[in-house]
Structure formats: structure tokens, C-alpha cells
Design a protein around this nucleic acid. Structure first.
Lengths: 164, 164
DNA sequence: TTGTTAATTTTAATTAAATTAGGAAATAAG
DNA sequence: CTTATTTCCTAATTTAATTAAAATTAACAA
């Protein structure tokens, strides 16, 4: 039995500079390295290398454009609260697989409480939502029920994680 | 009474190329103009100018980095369902103003149904959530009640608007 | 059809940012 | 204190963004 060589695992910890960079990029991913560097009192190279590290190590998942729904086309947002009759693991996996494929399901969470899943659904109008709920959700096996909350107004809709 | 000069309002309509560009940038805002151009069979200048137009006219709100919550620090996500005792307009505005300031409230929607507001809250742990719900929500005037659904698992969490 | 205008795209040139390389300063470890 | 390690800086290079000018296409009226 040989000596177990301790691999260098690299703790992948964040320091204050990393967190500051993440805070900036969460607000505006187009901020150029030079500008971030100036805000932090550094030059762009360390900033650049930290960003690359943060991407490499998975602290930054990806960069996306946030669109203005209202200007693009008619749509409504609905939260669907789904209850299962019996939570069999296999059933849930089927449900997830379907949900992943439905483009109108923008978010899906397993939750604890009065119901089992919470979906955020974006569709063209009420009619489209009715069809979605009836044929794409309620019709799935082992679904107990679906309640809906229609979004009347968006007060706040951030994408960022609240870094202290 | 003078003749009413019809201002050129610029219909700000999206064609298929615009939509294709938006679809790409929603998925990956770092896609370079050249690559988008190749996918669409164009050169980079028209792509560049369309993107600038889409930004200018507000179809693109902003660009953000999406972080990996789990790697950064301990946190839980909770949906809070808030009911008002009486929906007075002024009360609601106060509520919104507070909510806008709370960094732990990541999303806030006015909804129709069994309750009045739906919040997505990100906090460090259950204890922090208890304090948030008790002191920052339930204590506000005219709040009827707060129910909570704790996120056990994220199945899907997209930021994009489902463009047909 | 044909000429005119406006809009869009292309090519080419310029500017700015990202990326890489090598060495200096600060920090931590022995 | 000395060495090793990490982090940072300066400067050079590559790549992408941005601008400019000419060419093409589309729309439309004569």
C-alpha cells in the first residue's frame, strides 16, 4: 500500500476582491476590466485573471442578456402551484424531464409546504395558460392539482444573488 | 390651429433577424458579433448595429452574470405569499418601497388569487428567514398574513423570455 | 419598366478591450 | 531571515468592438 498523495484541491475560496467583482458583474456584465480595476484600485490583469478563475471554477455560471418582455410581445406570467397525489421518485423525475422541455416553464422548484412544485410560466395569454395547465400539467400522471397566481404587476425582478 | 405633424415614431418592430439575435444573447451574452453573424449568414456590422438598436430601444434591458449560489455561500430560497388586510393604494406603495430596499427580496410580484404578493427571498438560513418574515414583512402595516414555501430543489431556473 | 430614395449590408480601417508574457512586490512558510 | 508562493504590475500582442465609406438591395412613384 503506497503513501496516499494529497492532491492539491485548491480551496476555491472567495476573498473580498472576488466578491466585489461578482457584485459588479451581477449588475452589469458588460463592465470592462479596466473599469472594474479602477473601482478596486488595481490594474486590469489581476481583475481579468480573477474573472477567468471565477468562470473556470464555476462561481460564474454564465452571462445573459435580460430582455424587456413588454416590448417584445404580448405575454403573461403565471405562478403554478402543483400538488402530487403520491410523490414517487420515478414520477417526479418524469415530471422534471417534461418540465425541462417546456419552454413556457421558465422556473421550476421543488418546495415544502402546501404543495410540491412551484412553476413560473410565461405564455402569450390566458387561453395559452389554460391549455398549458390542462394538457401539459394536469394531464401528467400522479398530479393532484394545480393552483394558479396570475402576475398583475412586477414590482421587482432581480437576477442577482444578494452578496452581503 | 396648425397641421399636426406626424412625428416619425419608428415602429420599433422586431424582424426574424432581431429575434434570432435576442435568442442568442439571452442564452449567452458573450457570443461575439462575428459568431452571431456566421450563424445568421451576415457580416458583423449589421449584427452589431442591430444589437445597438435593440439596446437603445430598450428591447435589451441589460447584461448580467449569473452566479452559482451554491458555490458562493450558504443560502436558502423561500417564496413568501403575502396577504393584505385591505388593499389601499398608498399602503401598497409603501410596501413596494420597502421591498425595493430589502436586498433579500430578489423578486416581488402583485398577483391575483388567494394572496396579494408573491416574493422570492434569498437568505442565509431558516433563522434569517424567520427574522425577515417577522420583522420586515409581518410587521408592516396592513399585512394580513405571510405563508412560506421553502425551496428544496431547483429543477429549472432560466432567465430568458421564451421567444417563439 | 425605370429612376429615385431610403434602408441594409459589405468591405475596410480604426479604436478599444481582451489576452498573454515576464518580471516585481507583497505574503506566507519554513 | 530566507525561500517559496501568490498576487500584482508593466508592456506587448491578439482579438473584438466600433466607425466610415462604398455597394447592394428593397420600396415605390413616375
Amino acid at each position: 500500500m503506497g503513501i496516499v498523495k494529497q492532491e492539491k484541491v485548491m480551496m476555491e475560496k472567495l476573498d473580498d476582491i472576488d466578491r466585489a467583482i461578482l457584485r459588479i458583474l451581477q449588475k452589469d456584465a458588460k463592465t470592462v476590466a479596466k473599469s472594474i480595476a479602477e473601482q478596486l484600485g488595481l490594474t486590469k490583469t489581476p481583475v481579468y485573471e480573477r474573472i477567468k478563475r471565477l468562470e473556470q471554477e464555476g462561481f460564474i455560471k454564465n452571462y445573459v442578456a435580460i430582455l424587456n418582455k413588454d416590448k417584445i410581445e404580448e405575454s403573461i406570467t403565471v405562478f403554478s402551484f402543483v400538488s402530487l397525489e403520491a410523490q414517487k421518485g420515478a414520477m417526479m423525475d418524469d415530471f422534471f424531464e417534461q418540465v425541462m422541455k417546456y419552454p413556457e416553464v421558465v422556473e421550476c422548484f421543488v418546495v415544502g409546504g402546501e404543495f410540491d412544485f412551484l412553476l413560473k410560466v410565461v405564455v402569450k395569454n390566458l387561453d395559452a395558460y389554460y391549455n398549458f395547465a390542462k394538457f401539459k400539467i394536469a394531464s401528467l400522471p400522479s398530479i393532484g392539482g394545480v393552483k394558479s397566481a396570475f402576475v398583475l404587476n412586477e414590482v421587482k425582478n432581480d437576477t442577482h444573488f444578494p452578496l452581503l
